[in-house]
């Protein structure tokens, strides 16, 4: 007469089922995880809609300082100062405008002095290293001072690193000093 099923039966069956599970899972395993894809389109190009107020830069028409409005960049309130060093645009050039601020100078603007004071570190690129810094024209300084004072809260500009007539490297200018150049 047949006895009761042996305890070996379930164990073997469990083993067989595990093998079956592994066999079923084996073809699927390589598909697990993150798979590479081809190039997928995610819609059209985003619209440039950054909000930034226009900046006023003082250019020269002849020998007179003329305010010109250029578009600004978000988060760059002092962009006008660095814009003085770039060549004028075609439209501005056609309007007889020019700039005397040399473009080999890098300006680093910071507002950490007295209230209403804007500090501008002038770094000539490339640095000659012989101490013979070139002198900026008065018109260029006027462009700088008047452009800086278009930024709300700025009353004067402290230029650091610009060799001046006093033979030191600190020059404080205000737009009022160049009133004669304003049209």
């Amino acid at each position: 007469m047949r006895g009761r099923p042996s305890a070996v039966g379930p164990v073997r069956m469990l083993f067989a089922a595990t093998v079956a599970l592994a066999a079923l899972a084996a073809p699927v395993m390589p598909g697990l995880g993150i798979q590479p894809t081809g190039i997928i389109s995610a819609g059209g190009r985003p619209v440039a809609a950054g909000k930034a107020a226009g900046i006023t830069v003082y250019l020269l028409r002849g020998h007179r300082l003329v305010p010109v409005v250029r578009p600004g960049l978000p988060g760059h309130p002092y962009l006008g100062l660095t814009q003085l060093g770039v060549p004028v645009t075609y439209e501005e050039r056609r309007g007889g405008l020019r700039t005397e601020v040399p473009n080999e100078w890098e300006m680093q603007v910071r507002q950490d002095g007295m209230p209403g004071e804007l500090a501008v570190d002038m770094i000539e690129e490339p640095a000659r290293g012989d101490g013979s810094f070139g002198l900026w024209s008065r018109a260029a300084l006027g462009q700088l001072a008047c452009t800086a004072q278009t930024v709300p809260g700025v009353e004067r500009v402290v230029l650091a690193g610009l060799f001046n007539k006093r033979h030191d490297f600190w020059t404080t200018v205000t737009c009022d000093e160049f009133e004669d150049l304003l049209s």
């Binding site: 619209v47 950054g50 250029r70 960049l73 978000p74 988060g75 814009q83």
Partner: peptide
């Protein structure tokens, strides 16, 4: 984030020669 950043950081009109500044930003 890419879309929003481009939308926010790039205004409809750019000042001249600010590409390096925008790229860095």
């Amino acid at each position: 984030e890419v879309r929003d950043t481009l939308t926010r950081q790039i205004p409809p009109r750019l000042p001249p020669d600010t590409a390096a500044l925008i790229r860095a930003q």
